[in-house]
Design a protein around this nucleic acid. Structure first.
Lengths: 232, 232
DNA sequence: CACTTGCATTTTGTATACAATATGCCAAGC
DNA sequence: GCTTGGCATATTGTATACAAAATGCAAGTG
């Protein structure tokens, strides 16, 4: 919201620390459930406790950290219910993004998305999972940008970060992957046809499929997914 | 998210300060755009600057405050675009809440909601606007509770608080009010009939109507709505 | 041997001191 | 008269000191 005001000035010590921690959590440098020792983190980040604690509060508000009074902060460890609920909300948000995007999308946007889709198909053909995830994320971000709703974008990014802290990447079998790429193809077609309702439904189904895949992974923990319980 | 963990222990100085500030902002004790002086607020709340600043960070993450580096915090002043965007997201969230609620609602829930609806009709008949708003909010909160999605509830409450900081209450003419009450009647019927798609559509239309009303009020600023620009 | 109790240590919570930055005012110059 | 520079003041930013609480360990007790 807002963000429009002029004094562009991001950055302050707490913001920088929060950003650094956010990355650590999302990229897996800090695993779910890990306890965060203030003094130790202060040294690692080169800041004192005051700005670090402000960063903690920000991340806690984003749902990436849980703070227990007198017992410090730890990286959130999402329960199966949290994941189910989170993806349901994500599906609704992406559905909205699709509807809004249809109303504002330009031919140039579609050309860009087609290029991304082509990259995605290439990554898929070459079994390049990291590239696939990167492009996948770029496409979804692009769609949200086209939607042009700042509140939606903000909400989406926050929730996305929380779910990414799970590090559910590794879970993707061949069939699911093929399916996901095909879904993206349909989505692009719906967008090009300016069919908002269709795009919305496709996005919701797409997210529901992801939800199911992640939940399945969480339950049979034979995959490399890491959840809770691990002290740093 | 989460919140399920056992050590119930809410409350700490920063949490308490944040809660107090949140109330001040939403209830109008601090108007949009008001600059928040740390030392002064410290005295008013009886806390020192450290916990107050942590509270600032929490509220900023919720979008109730804007913090400018070296220039302090001020109550957010939503632009017309922010309001448009915010209500669009709210509509999507409430729509989801409706769909989920249908899948879980019990007869007892419906009885409760019918009672609330009756109260609402009474308040409407008696032109009791404050009571109407209170009951209206209770109904929407109840629906979200029935939906049973913690992430949705959290997201909903946060965004709701931000929009309520606008204090758009005063804007409701007779026709709009009648319409809103009628819509609530239809929504309750759809819920009782377990018609998720219908309830979803009704909720989205309901929210869109509210959006339009608020935007109209914002634009003709002859009403008593107060937006931005007012230093405390 | 399990369980409690008390102490030492660690860790978090809050206040405050000091530093850096911004703000407002007044005078000097154009 | 308007602008500009510089100083005094106020305000925010960060580090740190002290207080309070939790944690871990060891000794004592049933």
């Amino acid at each position: 919201m807002d963000g429009s005001s002029f004094p562009i000035a991001r950055s302050s010590l707490p913001d920088a620390a929060a950003e650094r921690l956010r990355t650590l959590i999302i990229e897996g440098g800090l695993l779910p459930g890990a306890k965060l020792n203030e003094r130790e983190l202060c040294e690692r980040l080169g800041v004192s406790r005051t700005p670090l604690r402000e960063a903690f509060r920000m991340l806690a508000a984003d749902g990436l950290l849980v703070q227990l009074p007198n017992r410090g902060a730890q990286v959130v460890a999402l329960s199966s219910d949290d994941v189910r609920d989170g993806f349901e909300v994500m599906a609704a948000l992406e559905g909205l993004a699709g509807e809004l995007a249809v109303a504002r999308v330009t031919d140039a946007d579609i050309a860009d998305l087609r290029a991304l889709q082509a990259e995605m198909e290439t990554a898929h053909a070459q079994h390049d999972l990291p590239a696939y995830y990167r492009i996948n994320r770029a496409i979804h971000d692009r769609l949200n940008a086209i939607a042009g709703n700042a509140v939606l974008g903000q909400t989406y990014r926050t929730l996305n970060a929380r779910l990414h802290a799970l590090r559910f990447r590794s879970n993707l079998n061949r069939a699911k992957w093929d399916q996901a790429v095909a879904e993206h193809r349909s989505m692009l077609a719906a967008l090009a046809a300016r069919d908002g309702a269709a795009l919305r439904d496709l996005l919701i189904r797409h997210l529901r499929a992801k939800q199911q895949a992640v939940l399945a992974t969480m339950n049979n923990q034979d995959s490399e997914i890491l959840l809770g319980g691990n002290e740093q």
